[in-house]
Nucleic acid binder design. Structure first.
Lengths: 166, 166
DNA sequence: CCTTGATCTGAACATCTGTTCAGTTATCGT
DNA sequence: ACGATAACTGAACAGATGTTCAGATCAAGG
């Protein structure tokens, strides 16, 4: 709290004109982050599963990169939420997972993907993509675009997409 | 510290007969965890890359599951290490990553794997596999063996292993 | 049984933490 | 210009934290 106040250029007490307490601040940050994530994910259920998946992969990497601070908090501070708040955050996270799983199921039903357990595939892919935030720094060997391309290849392969396209 | 003492059934002061300070305790825990991980990984550079990869995937999942407490600490408390200690831990983690990357490179050189960036593939796979610890609980829908099998399929696909074997 | 060394207790310490609040200062519509 | 409302300060509070240490307690060998 004191560190936040210093960063803002204000005394600690002033913060409490805007926040009831630290727990609520933490929860609001996470909730807003996840709701922004869900809002920004522009999935089109009518499109081809492969295109939907492509979009999801690149969107996830880019969105998490653009908000790496929020991502860091959302992952590291989970254990500091009250059980009620934790449940709400988990519900939002589950909605996001479900969005990816729906794409994977659609692709499997259409015969485009070959995967035996869509739930596992969903969790695996999200973990894989989110991992980028832990090591990526601008100015490294690869640009974010190149990284998106690499991960897209890995995801395609993981879901057994027939590799005929160039 | 007080919580650890209570768990052990002792007063706080007594702990300091065994530890110089909390930072050292944290560092030692992480270091021992990572050294145990590196020791337990029985990679055989002479074996076929596909078998080495198979072994790595299952080993990683099982080892991290067996020591989920240590894994939790090793990930959540990283930011509480001094810069020097952090560097040492990162060096160990890198050795583990390098072990996987060596397998992937061997497979690519042998024409068994098809992946354009071995470094990205390494980080992606490790993130994907480590993610299991965040959600897996015994008694769920799938056994650990089944989960290993699912992830093995995903990893095979991600690395473009030709899918002829049953 | 008694001495010696290891081990543990109980209490204290300094510092950090989230939070509150009376009083000062700034803002803005009239 | 003034009064009302909002915003901020400065200081204090209560509790938690890592750490220390003098003295009590225990274990074991002679």
């Amino acid at each position: 709290m004191r560190r936040i106040a210093a960063e803002v250029g204000v005394q600690v007490g002033a913060l409490y004109n805007y926040i009831p307490d630290k727990q609520t601040l933490l929860f609001d940050l996470m909730q807003e982050h996840l709701e922004a994530l869900l809002d920004a994910l522009a999935d089109n259920p009518g499109a081809a599963p492969l295109n939907r998946l492509d979009h999801f992969v690149r969107f996830h990497i880019r969105f998490h990169h653009d908000r790496s601070d929020a991502v860091f908090i959302a992952y590291m501070e989970l254990r500091n939420l009250t059980p009620e708040n934790f449940a709400k955050i988990e519900a939002l996270r589950k909605r996001y997972e479900d969005a990816l799983e729906a794409i994977i199921e659609a692709g499997r039903d259409a015969g485009a993907f070959h995967v035996s357990d869509t739930k596992i595939a969903t969790l695996a892919i999200i973990a894989m993509l989110t991992g980028v935030t832990t090591w990526f720094r601008s100015g490294g060997r690869l640009s974010l675009n190149e990284i998106e391309e690499q991960y897209w290849q890995l995801v395609r392969g993981a879901l057994g997409v027939s590799s005929e396209a160039p």
